[in-house]
Nucleic acid binder design. Structure first.
Lengths: 330, 330
DNA sequence: ATGAAAGCGCTAACAT
DNA sequence: ATGTTAGCGCTTTCAT
């Protein structure tokens, strides 16, 4: 910038004014400076401006995975708000999450979106206490009072359940994520609630745990060995759905199935997969909006936004065959 | 940091030394400073250090899409090299690419990974000329001499083709991306080469163009109307594969199919999908390695790394039924 | 309307 | 082994 000032034969501050489109600079000055900028191929240093200004104009995100589905929407929303989004993945590892958050804080992001691992990073709590605007996405932050954007997990599970019941199913089981995770817990609980309401016994129909091929296979095998045999299944997240399809094939061993969260290939497999689709776009957008509003006004009360989910009926959820099917003598 | 110095009762530079683990500081100093840091919850400002040091320790990436498959590997590789990775998506839009690259340059990233849109951003060329280390990923940079990491597209198509031929197919067609894109062009060309080698006529067997549902459907319908009817198909990228499966169903209307690039559900659908899998991990890793080595030594000659691909045989590629099948009277 | 100068938070000489 | 001081590239008073 000094070079530009020198070449243009003006003061440093004038160059700065031109770069920042200050309306008080004269038109000839503007041209002289812009020429100098062009000849020097000058590019302002964003870090220096941020340092001086005290604001970074940057939002940070610590998400579970690079492919986290809200990121696309969040990036777009940030862009629309003229903020940059910097993000890193945590692989659902508390240590890594801590590292990522620290790194982002040292970059002095103006606010942080975090998809929290189950285990609470105490570091994050401290930053929030120090005034860092934070919004949790997908799962709320345990033990800390922070904004959050979550899916309507209960509504989704209930819709899936009702759909199966409406098709005549009674012997339904649930296979999903570990209840250590908020979403896993909420969905499993919602299922229990549903099952109880029709007189079923949740104790033998909820399989929650790690999403690994081995565990899911074992759970499926166990569930299918029960007599009377279950006729329907609700899977609690995409990883579970995929492993289930891998193990049982797209026909799911004759079970009716509703999967939590949509899959790219849900309409390709035969039979097509009926799903509860989360609105990732809306989640990402909402997270950025919440974050920006909190940056503007840190004293806002804590908000929790629940994003609706949608039942997408694809394959017919086949009726159970022949026999009677109450889960218990209801 | 001044605050820390004040609380610890030492000089600013001593705090800096402690923060940077300078070995010349005495042990009691270290403790005093660390205590002050802890009580003040001090967090160094990364931007200020970068500004002063002249290096950002950050790599930038401008990729097509948030879900770009190399990003995960690139992030990990960067992390291993103790560098941060900042990235944004370009949606294959030249304007957006330009914006993203400019933004990254203003952040003074030490180097840039870019998955170039077809249209050349002149801005990027200027930056490279000015000495910005850049490596292109997936597709080389048109008209600019820069490092690149690409898949072995020719080898992949050839493997797919040979596999089909070995199963008795002769009437094979190719459906893929627009030839404006490097990968689309290379794959289509490779297919032409293959087809010619068995005496087939590429003119009627290559369908390259935009990856939209409409175009792909039309291309499939046209291809399948030809007599003698084709017996096999090679799809040129995942988007094309998905639209093809959507249109024709997982049985692909009786065609044998080999798809370029693996799909998460390739082993789930029936019949399972045989694919040419790209090694996205290796690509991301290689890009970061190339970039870092070029940052270290800007005078390195330009390198192009080709990452091998792998044929994953899943479903049997059914033999064509009954009749004879030469593409022409070879 | 423009220039001079202070300072954002830090590192790296240079002193002692 | 520790302190003093001069910037890194910019914005922003405060003068003029």
């Amino acid at each position: 910038m000094v070079d530009v000032a020198h070449v243009a034969g003006v003061a440093l501050s004038t160059v700065s004014r031109v770069v920042n489109a200050d309306p008080t600079v004269g038109p000839d000055m503007i041209r002289r400076v812009e020429n100098a900028i062009a000849t020097l191929q000058y590019e302002p240093d964003e870090r220096a401006r941020q340092l001086r200004r005290g604001l970074s104009g940057t939002l940070g995100a610590a998400v579970r995975d690079v492919g986290s589905p809200f990121i696309g929407a969040a990036e777009k929303a940030a862009r629309d708000a003229k903020m940059m989004l910097m993000w890193s993945s945590t692989n659902d590892d508390a240590r890594l999450e801590s590292e990522v958050v620290i790194s982002l804080c040292r970059q002095r992001v103006d606010g942080l979106i975090v998809e929290p691992t189950g285990d609470q990073s105490s570091y994050l709590g401290r930053q929030i206490a120090k005034g860092l605007p934070v919004v949790a996405i997908d799962r709320p932050l345990a033990g800390v009072d922070a904004d959050a954007v979550v899916s309507d997990n209960v509504g989704g599970i209930t819709a899936a359940f009702d759909h199966l019941v409406a098709s005549g199913h009674r012997r339904i089981f649930y296979l999903g994520d570990h209840e250590r995770l908020f979403t896993g817990r909420q969905r499993a609980d919602a299922f229990r609630e549903c099952l109880s309401s029709i007189g079923g016994d949740p104790a033998t129909a909820v399989y929650a745990g790690e999403v690994t091929a081995e565990r899911i296979r074992a759970a499926l095998d166990n569930a299918l060995r029960r007599r009377p045999r279950p006729t329907a299944l609700i899977t609690g997240n995409d990883g579970t759905t995929i492993e289930t399809l891998r193990h049982l094939g797209p026909e799911v061993a004759g079970l009716a199935i509703v999967a939590f969260d949509d899959l790219e290939f849900a309409d390709i497999i035969r039979p097509p997969l009926t799903v509860i689709a989360q609105d990732h776009q809306a989640m990402g957008r909402a997270a950025v909006e919440l974050l920006i509003s909190r940056i503007r006004d840190p004293h806002l009360p804590t908000r929790r936004v629940t994003i609706p989910v949608r039942l997408i009926e694809r394959g017919a959820v086949n009726r159970p065959s022949r026999r009677r099917q109450p889960a218990t003598r209801a």
